[in-house]
Design a protein around this nucleic acid. Sequence first.
DNA 1: CGAGGAGTTGACGTTGGTCAATAAATGTGG
DNA 2: CCACATTTATTGACCAACGTCAACTCCTCG
Lengths: 234, 234
Amino acid sequence: MGRLDRSLINSLPLFAGIAPADLDKILESATSRRIAKDGFVFEQGGEATSFFVLLDGRVRVVKTTPDGQQVIVRYIVPGEVLGIAQALGRNTYPASAIAVVDCVVLAWPGRQWPEFAAAFPSFGTNTYKMIGQRLDDVQTQVVEMATEQVERRVAHALLRLTQQTGKKSSEGILIDFPISRQDIAEMTGTTLHTVSRLLTAWEQKGLVKSARQQVTIVAPHRLLLLAEGRLDKD
Amino acid sequence: MGRLDRSLINSLPLFAGIAPADLDKILESATSRRIAKDGFVFEQGGEATSFFVLLDGRVRVVKTTPDGQQVIVRYIVPGEVLGIAQALGRNTYPASAIAVVDCVVLAWPGRQWPEFAAAFPSFGTNTYKMIGQRLDDVQTQVVEMATEQVERRVAHALLRLTQQTGKKSSEGILIDFPISRQDIAEMTGTTLHTVSRLLTAWEQKGLVKSARQQVTIVAPHRLLLLAEGRLDKD
DNA sequence: CGAGGAGTTGACGTTGGTCAATAAATGTGG
DNA sequence: CCACATTTATTGACCAACGTCAACTCCTCG
């Protein structure tokens, strides 16, 4: 089996402060895995056998309700961990993770997590810092959903995506993976129809440009004003 | 200063698996504090100097938006930790914690958290398990807010409260602390008017009984059916 | 070239928010 | 202990936001 080079991970925040020799040791128990577009990294309810680091691609984390409705909890970009159920004492995945494009992940056996955390304290600290960040993110999302109406929620969602995966283009900031109106609706608790109407309205005002599975933020600052409810209506 | 007895904490899940002698050591750096009704345990944005365990009373954790709207993130009952910002690498509290009734808390200096976690591994594990549970709770809440309409959200909120703080009474299960229509609205992202209308409608159907700052669930099972959307309309 | 997925747009209806008036309960000061 | 202020709750009237339904277009892929 091909040996994994520590250059794959040595610049990731998760592994900050770990000696090169230790990184090699950590990598010994990792396997790399390719996930084709639309494939599952893991499935909601499935036994949490592994945890992962995304090396390349984009992953969508989705919760499905008993009656089949889906909510996109977050998008994962390269360098982030996913499937950390065991770090939190769970033995089943609370959501599904789906490759938005072809992806490469590193996978570790879940039961190795406690060993790593014990052997490399900064590994534990870094993970929990990240979990703290996520807890905060999702609480902020609850507040948004409770207090803002749809237009502002969608604006916030797009702005968050540009922060995470924005790519400068000639026209503005491009959200750098295929994303449909339906996806945006599932991030914000609305319908694809409403998202479609919003995007065309915004396009007419010169805030965004959109195409099939693609959104570019043309005027991020004005969109932020709108998201914050401080933009004059017209 | 009065010595704290380990019987205060030795039955709490957070301290499960820690030797009695160690509990005494942990208690040495704790101080107990009384918080009068409506007083703050800590305030959103304030420097995270301490973390707490609630010994008695009820605490409401609230996030306030820049424009002054409030969202109740969760209620804390005796035995639970709160203000664990530092365990997650934060140095400022992300929300405010307010005593719903007169409360007693134990407080530790925040910087002691890493020491405890290092010295007593089960302490760290237990905390992170609890954080994992909370992360899951709040994600579930996002899903609810995204997919359910108000009536079901309010029903779910009340049911969750009965799980947490329900007290059997002659009429049903009483939510055992003062809670206003406004509070319920802030938990579910609606208005006190809508909550009021729902409660009177439910009272007529015999699902609940309510009074000023008080709600009793009379028919939990039927309310659950309603929350799950499996109750016939009438 | 045909089929299926993604997007747009109009018409319409409902949920639930806003506004306003009133009532009931609780607290406070004289 | 009573009068008055304040907080909490109720209820009606109205209406806007946004979801639902439906028809149609445009890509993209096989």
